[in-house]
């Protein structure tokens, strides 16, 4: 019997969700890119317009399904639908974005349903390109309002770094499940 564990990858456009899933997935990522017409939000040529999909098959038939949700707010209905099935959230933030701290608040608010029954980690990407203190500010914001959510600096293309992120998330997912069973 297969048991699946759904992990969502969310975050603003250009934060590295597709790259992160590609780094982790054992199968080529099913990617749904189209021409980016919102150049004010991101200078990327293409953007995800449906769900990216990747997976990691574990022993005994367990599968971790990795879903990358599109980052634009008009896809909010997709975020809502997927939250009930997911056990964990990887929120990727772009250190070069206009206001990564605002993105923290925005996305964690929209995924609060998932946070009630699951766990989350935050990865801040492109910190080597940002002149600001984006990582430190995101850490401070999370310590204020979501002290149980770890935040890491990552290169979303780097498999080793994404494995660390995923390991931390699964650790917290298990702790959360044990807590919920105990209460």
């Amino acid at each position: 019997m297969h048991t699946e564990h759904v992990i969502l990858f969310a975050g603003p456009m250009g934060a590295g969700k597709t790259a992160a899933i590609s780094a982790l997935s054992e199968i080529p990522v099913v990617s749904t890119e189209a021409l980016n017409t919102d150049l004010a939000a991101s200078a990327k040529l293409t953007t995800t317009v449906a769900l990216d999909y990747g997976q990691i098959t574990l022993e005994d038939g367990h599968v971790i399904r990795l879903y990358g949700v599109p980052g634009q707010e008009r896809f909010e209905f997709v975020w809502k639908l997927l939250q009930t099935r997911a056990v964990g959230l990887v929120l990727l933030l772009d250190a070069c974005a206009k206001d990564p701290v605002e993105d923290v608040d925005f996305f964690l608010d929209h995924f609060k349903e998932l946070l009630r029954h699951g766990a989350a980690v935050v990865g801040v990407t492109r910190t080597d390109l940002a002149a600001n203190e984006a990582f430190a500010r995101c850490c401070a914001r999370l310590r204020q309002h979501h002290e149980r959510i770890p935040v890491f600096e990552v290169d979303a293309r780097d498999r080793a770094q994404m494995v660390v992120l995923l390991t931390a998330l699964i650790t917290l997912v298990q702790m959360r499940e044990t807590e919920l069973e105990a209460n």
Partner: peptide, 22 residues
Amino acid sequence: APKVVPMARGGLLQRLLNRIGF
């Protein structure tokens, strides 16, 4: 503080670690 939760043994994390060779 919330009640202490024992570290889960085996389970999903162990399967993941076995798979990725961490």
